[in-house]
């Protein structure tokens, strides 16, 4: 990987496009999520603003922009303002190695998945900082939960991804996609169904989505770590939450669902279709299941996901050894 002026310009343009994607994704996902919630509860969902409520999310974003930045007393100023920025910035890096299409990758990194996993950890730090700096008991509780949860769920997630890496023999995301075929039974989900399941459960836990949304459990902690944030501070947390959701969906599509390869006409549209299908399933889960208790959450992880992922990895390694 040589960093010339051309690749620098390329990265800048890609980053701008990614920011656009993140914002657009948040707007679209808010609409999809609210509509899905409505339909599942057998009501119309957003309806009034624009045709069928389509510009409701944009209006909400405008409202957030116009809101006063309210700063509670006794906050730690530096950390209070650092936290939302820290939540938002690493997401840009996370999108760099994602292969949207065969040649549509911002940065061809040989250790792509390592980069993603390393920088994904920064999101937790922003949660801790936000909870700590806002000088609020709910915020602090939410932050403590976020740490315990994210640390726990990262391990089976990595184990599940490692099983696929064993199959491919590469950490490069493009290589992983290239190894998979065009048809669904040639994708990694057919070879590693257990790893796919474990990854899916952990991605819900990792992105703090319901039923694992303990760090921001509304009924217990008002809003968890971002209780004291208003206006753009809240908007940045919100944006990074949806961007993280998009990212894990892209990783899921790349690792298990064949990435940009599809039955007809390979291309970036397959990546997007698959990623958004995963997102829709996450939304579906959210409006189906009640929130788990915290001990249940950790039990699921330490007693089931972790042993299963280790077992899966072990069996994969043995099979690869014997076949080779």
């Amino acid at each position: 990987m040589e960093l010339s002026l051309l690749s620098f310009v390329q990265i800048i343009i890609a980053c701008l496009l990614i920011i656009g994607l993140m914002v657009g994704n948040a707007v679209i996902m808010v609409y999809i999520e609210r509509k899905a919630a409505g339909f599942i509860q057998r009501r119309p969902g957003p309806y009034e603003v624009g045709p069928r409520g389509t510009i409701q999310a944009i209006c909400d974003a405008m409202k957030l922009l116009g809101k006063q930045l309210f700063i509670p007393g006794n906050v730690d100023w530096a950390l209070y303002f650092l936290a939302p920025v820290l939540a938002f910035l690493p997401v840009l890096v996370l999108f760099l190695p994602i292969p949207f299409g065969k040649y549509l990758t911002t940065l061809q990194v040989d250790d792509g998945i390592l980069l993603i996993l390393a920088f994904a950890g920064l999101g937790v730090i922003s949660n801790i900082l936000a909870g700590w700096a806002s000088n609020n008991k709910y915020g602090l509780l939410g932050a403590a939960r976020a740490v315990a949860q994210s640390v726990a769920y990262e391990i089976p997630m990595i184990m599940a991804l490692l099983a696929v890496v064993f199959l491919t023999g590469s950490l490069n995301l493009t290589a992983i996609v290239e190894r998979q075929g065009t048809w669904p039974w040639e994708w990694n989900i057919a070879y590693q169904p257990l790893a796919c399941f474990i990854y899916f459960v952990s991605l819900v836990g990792e992105t703090n989505r319901a039923p694992f949304d303990l760090p921001e459990a509304e009924s217990e902690l008002t809003a968890g770590f971002h209780t004291e944030y208003s206006g753009m501070g809240f908007a940045l947390f919100f944006l990074s939450e949806y961007a993280n959701m998009l990212l894990v969906s892209f990783v899921c599509a790349t690792f298990f669902l064949g990435g940009y390869r599809g039955p007809i006409l390979d291309g970036f549209w397959w990546t997007f279709i698959k990623a958004y299908a995963v997102m829709c399933v996450i939304v579906w889960l959210r409006w189906t299941f009640p929130r788990v208790r915290f001990d249940q959450l950790l039990n699921i992880n330490w007693k089931w996901l972790l042993p299963l992922s280790i077992l899966n990895l072990w069996v994969t390694a043995i099979i690869i050894k014997f076949i080779d």
Binding site: A36, I40, R42, R43, P44, L285, W287, F289
Partner: peptide, 28 residues
């Protein structure tokens, strides 16, 4: 027990999926 629990989660998903596709109950 846990496998049964997983199955019940699947049943729940189908119930909400069914609701998603059925007509709305509210009056606009």
């Amino acid at each position: 027990d846990n496998l049964k629990g997983l199955y019940s989660l699947l049943v729940g998903l189908f119930i909400t999926g069914d609701f998603f596709l059925s007509p709305q109950k509210t009056t606009h």
